[in-house]
C-alpha cells in the first residue's frame, strides 16, 4: 500500500513539474524575444494574444506542423538519438530541486520536491555532464562540416568549463557541510538576505565564477560558439528541422532554467524569504506553501532576466579567448576560492 502511495505521488509530482517546466521553457523564449526586442529598441512579438502572450503556443504549433526532413547522408540511429539525449537530460535534472518549503507534506510525501537525494548537487552535475552527448552526437551524425565544427567546439568548451563550474560550487558545499540541496538551502535561511551564500557566506567570487561557467555550459551568449551563426550557419543543429530542432531549442532553455534553479539554491537562499524573520510566517497553510514558491520563482526569473540582458549586451568571444579565459582565469580563481573558504572556515 505504501509503495502504491509512493508511486502515485511521485507520478503526480513528475507530471506537474514537467508540465510547469515545459511551460516555463515556452515563456522563457517569449521573455527573451520581448526583452531583446526592447534592448534593440523594437517591440518583439506583439500580435498573437494580449502583449503577444500566446506567441509560444503558435510557435509550438508551427514546429509541429513543419515538414520533418532527414537528410540522406546522416548516420540515422545517432541522428535520431541526439535530440532525445539533449532534451531528456535537460528535463531530468529538475527532479532533485526543492521548489518550496519541504515542511509541507501530505502523509509524509513532500509536495515541492520530486526526490530528496543525499547527493542532489552531484546528481545535477552528473546529468548535465551526460547532456553533452546530445550536442556532440548531433554534430557528428549530421555529416555536415558546420555541424561537426560546432559540436567539436561545444565538447571542448563544456569539458573545460565544467571544471570551473564544479570547483566554484565547492565553497558552498564546504559551508553547508552537505551535498543535499535541501540542507544547503536551509543553511542560508536564518537571517534572510544577510545569510545568503552570496553575501553573508562571502561566496560572491564563487557566484560570479559560477555565473560565467554556467553561461558557457548552456551555450549561451557571450559563449555561444557552438552555434555561432556568423561562421557556422547554425552550428550543431544545422541539419535538424521541425520538432527535432525544437527539442534542441527546448533543451537549451530548460538547461537555462536548471542553471537558474541551482544558482538560486546555492547562492541566493533557495525558497527562503530574503527578509528573513522580519515578515511573520503566515498561519494560513495555502499562503505558507505559496510564499516560498513565489520567492523561488522570483529569484529564478531574475536570473533568467540577467541571461537575456547579457545576451542583448555582450558580443561573442573568440575561440582562443574562450579557452584562455576558462583555463587561465576561471579555474585558478575557483581553486583560490576553495582555499580561501577552507581557511576562513578553519579559523572561524
Amino acid at each position: 500500500m505504501n509503495l502504491l502511495y509512493f508511486f502515485i505521488w511521485s507520478l503526480l509530482k513528475v507530471i506537474v513539474v514537467t508540465v510547469v517546466m515545459l511551460l516555463g521553457v515556452a515563456y522563457t523564449v517569449l521573455l527573451e524575444r520581448k526583452l531583446v526586442g526592447r534592448i534593440q529598441n523594437r517591440w518583439g512579438p506583439s500580435r498573437v494574444g494580449p502583449f503577444g502572450l500566446l506567441q509560444p503556443l503558435v510557435d509550438g504549433a508551427k514546429s509541429f506542423l513543419k515538414e520533418d526532413i532527414i537528410p540522406t547522408a546522416v548516420y540515422k540511429p545517432l541522428y535520431l538519438l541526439a535530440p532525445m539525449i539533449a532534451l531528456g537530460c535537460a528535463l531530468i535534472s529538475i527532479a532533485v530541486v526543492p521548489f518550496g518549503d519541504p515542511g509541507i507534506a501530505v502523509s509524509g510525501f513532500r509536495l515541492f520536491q520530486i526526490s530528496d537525494v543525499n547527493i542532489g548537487l552531484l546528481v545535477i552535475l552528473g546529468i548535465t555532464s551526460i547532456g553533452v552527448y546530445g550536442v556532440a552526437l548531433a554534430g557528428w551524425s549530421s555529416n555536415n562540416k558546420y555541424s561537426l565544427l560546432g559540436s567539436l567546439r561545444s565538447s571542448a568548451q563544456l569539458v573545460s568549463y565544467e571544471l570551473a563550474l564544479g570547483l566554484s560550487l565547492v565553497g558552498v558545499v564546504l559551508r553547508a557541510g552537505s551535498l543535499n540541496l535541501r540542507v544547503i538551502v536551509e543553511s542560508q535561511a536564518s537571517k534572510g538576505l544577510l545569510t545568503w551564500n552570496i553575501f553573508g557566506g562571502l561566496q560572491i567570487f564563487a557566484f560570479f565564477i559560477y555565473l560565467m561557467a554556467a553561461y558557457a555550459e548552456t551555450n549561451r551568449s557571450p559563449f555561444d560558439l557552438p552555434e555561432a551563426e556568423s561562421e557556422l550557419t547554425a552550428g550543431y543543429h544545422t541539419e535538424y528541422s521541425s520538432m527535432k530542432f525544437a527539442m534542441f531549442f527546448m533543451a537549451e532553455y530548460a538547461n537555462m532554467i536548471t542553471v537558474g534553479c541551482v544558482a538560486t539554491m546555492l547562492f541566493l537562499g533557495g525558497w527562503t524569504s530574503p527578509l528573513g524573520n522580519i515578515l511573520p510566517t503566515p498561519q494560513n497553510i495555502v499562503l505558507r506553501s505559496l510564499l516560498p514558491i513565489f520567492w523561488f520563482v522570483l529569484k529564478v526569473f531574475s536570473f533568467l532576466f540577467l541571461y537575456v540582458w547579457v545576451r542583448g549586451t555582450l558580443p561573442r568571444f573568440r575561440y582562443d579567448q574562450l579557452m584562455n579565459f576558462g583555463w587561465r582565469y576561471l579555474l585558478p580563481l575557483a581553486i583560490l576560492n576553495i582555499v580561501g573558504t577552507s581557511l576562513w572556515l578553519a579559523y572561524k
Binding site: L125, G126, S129, Y133, L148, E162
Partner: peptide, 19 residues
Amino acid sequence: AQVIVYAGAVMVLFTFVIM
C-alpha cells in the same frame, strides 16, 4: 563520481578525439 568523471568527462574526450 563514476558518472561525472568517466561517463561525463573521460568518454567525452574519447568521442571528441574520434570526431
